[in-house]
Amino acid sequence: MSLRPAIPRDCRVAFRSLDDEAAAAHEATCAFCAARAAARRTLVEPLSARPAAPAELAQPSFLQSIYERTVERSEHGPVAEWLNVAPLPEGTGDAEWGQRLQTSGVAEELGRRPAAPDAAAWSRVHQEIVSGAAATTARTATGRWPTLLAGAAVAAIVAAISVSNGTQPEPRIVFTELSDAPDVPFAVVRYGAKD
C-alpha cells in the first residue's frame, strides 16, 4: 500500500504553484480542489482561535481521578508485585534496619561462598604452580650466594654508619591545642585574674 496521499498530480501542481490565477483557474475546473478550498474558507476562522478548555478539566477532583486511575493500574503491575514481596524498613527513624539487612536473605546471597572448583582442575592448577616455582628455584640457585653476600655487606655498612654517628632516632613531638591558657605568671600579666 502506498503512503503517498491520494491527490491527483494536476492538483499537487496547482497547490505548489505561486500563481494565484492559475490556482483559481484549476479550482474552477476541479471538484476535488474546489471542495477543499471551500472547507479551508469555512474552517480558517474557527481554527485561528484556541478553544477554551472545559471547566471540568480545571477541577482538582478531575486531576485526583487521574492519579487514582494511575495508581489502580500500577497496583496490578510487576513493580507492585515486587514491592509487596521485598522487606521494607519499619518507620522512618528505624536505626536497626542495617542490622536486619545483614541477617536478611540479601546478605546471605552476597556472602554465599562460591561453588568449590572441580577437584581435577584444581589439581592441575596446583601442579602448574609448583612446577613453575621449582623452575624458578633451579634458575636462581646458582646466584644465591652472591646475593646473600651483598646483603650482608650492605647490613654491615649501615650498622657501621649508625654506630659511628651514635645517633638515636629523634623523639616525635606532637602539639595539641589548649582551649584555655595554662596557669603561668605571664597569663596573669596579660589577662589578670582568672575567671
Binding site: 616525635r172 591545642e177 589548649l178 591558657a181 603561668v184 605571664f186 597569663a187 589577662y191
Partner: peptide, 17 residues
Amino acid sequence: SANVIGRFRDPALSALV
C-alpha cells in the same frame, strides 16, 4: 604515650606546657 606539648596561643599570649 606520645610526647605531647599543649599549646595555647592567641594574639596576646603564647603558652606551651
